[in-house]
């Protein structure tokens, strides 16, 4: 793949003080793709997204080696606002909506960092168009526009968090565990939305612990273990690998052994 395409992370090492959270991670998100990052608690998934967004310093962390670039421009070392301005926007873990502000104001906040002025590649017509697109994806946000965001249900808050990020008109959306703590039905809705957003032309880097869901959406996936890429490849292939099935899809070793090779496994956690 061409180095000027999409997102490229190269040999990224991140420390929080003396604690090494990522060691030599390399990863690509080609334009238009959905790429998943899997891994257990503390594997370094959120750290990866913080490094891309430039917010490590809020956690007293920093990049100690490696480089991140998007469409050929360096992101590592850039301020968070500059990263957003280039079209890379994150939906953080735990939604982090502004709960004391209204739904409408949350969406406005999301638009504050959007790229100004028309560059040819960007989606035209600015904030009004972005708002329409968000409300079409999540009609409930229009109904609740004047309500305090803190009063929304967990699923609605996740929709607001995604909608808020879309207000910045991203070309690459970073999602940190968007289905965490949601009922299966709501998780399935969020998954459909991610598909829809991607179909409208936004690439997605999806961090998930729900491997079944993530692998069903992604074309490529990476598995992080203690800060390093343990496995990566096409999502379909990973879904069939013994390692992933045993550790992340909750399928026991016996079942793995019993299954005939080539047979697609039942993706239990995603069946909702």
């Amino acid at each position: 793949m061409n180095a000027t395409d999409g997102l490229a992370v190269r040999d990224l090492t991140v420390h929080y003080g003396p604690v090494r959270a990522l060691g030599g991670v390399s990863l690509d998100v080609p334009p238009g793709a959905v790429v998943a990052v899997l891994g257990g608690n503390g594997a370094g998934k959120s750290t990866l997204l913080r490094a891309i967004s430039g917010t490590l310093r809020f956690q007293r962390g920093g990049i100690s080696a490696g480089e991140i670039s998007f469409e050929g421009e360096r992101l590592s070392g850039a301020a968070p606002a500059a990263v957003v301005a280039r079209g890379v926007v994150q939906v953080p873990e735990g939604r982090r909506i502004f709960s004391r502000m209204t739904v409408e104001e949350n969406l406005r906040a999301g638009a504050l960092g959007a790229r100004r002025g028309a560059r040819p590649r960007m989606i035209p017509h600015g904030a009004a168009e972005a708002r329409e697109r968000v409300l079409a994806l999540f009609p409930v946000l229009a109904e609740r526009a004047r309500q305090r965001a803190g009063l929304l249900s967990g699923g609605e808050q996740q929709m607001l968090a995604i909608g808020r990020a879309l207000m910045a008109r991203p070309r690459l959306l970073l999602l940190d565990e968007p289905t965490l703590g949601l009922a299966p039905l709501m998780a399935a809705r969020i998954a459909d939305t991610i598909k829809e957003i991607n179909a409208q032309g936004t690439s997605v880097l999806l961090v998930e612990q729900n491997a079944a869901l993530a692998l069903s959406l992604a074309s490529h996936a990476y598995v992080l273990e203690v800060g390093e890429v343990a496995l990566h490849g096409p999502a379909a292939g990973l879904a069939e690998s013994d390692e992933v099935r045993r550790r992340y899809l909750g399928i026991g070793a016996a079942e793995v052994a019993a299954g005939t090779p080539g047979e697609r496994p039942a993706l239990s956690r995603w069946s909702a």
């Binding site: 301020a79 990263v83 957003v84 926007v89 953080p92 960092g113 959007a114």
Partner: peptide
Amino acid sequence: EDAETAALMGIR
């Protein structure tokens, strides 16, 4: 309300 998230929105 939340400075880190505000930064994620591109607020300077």
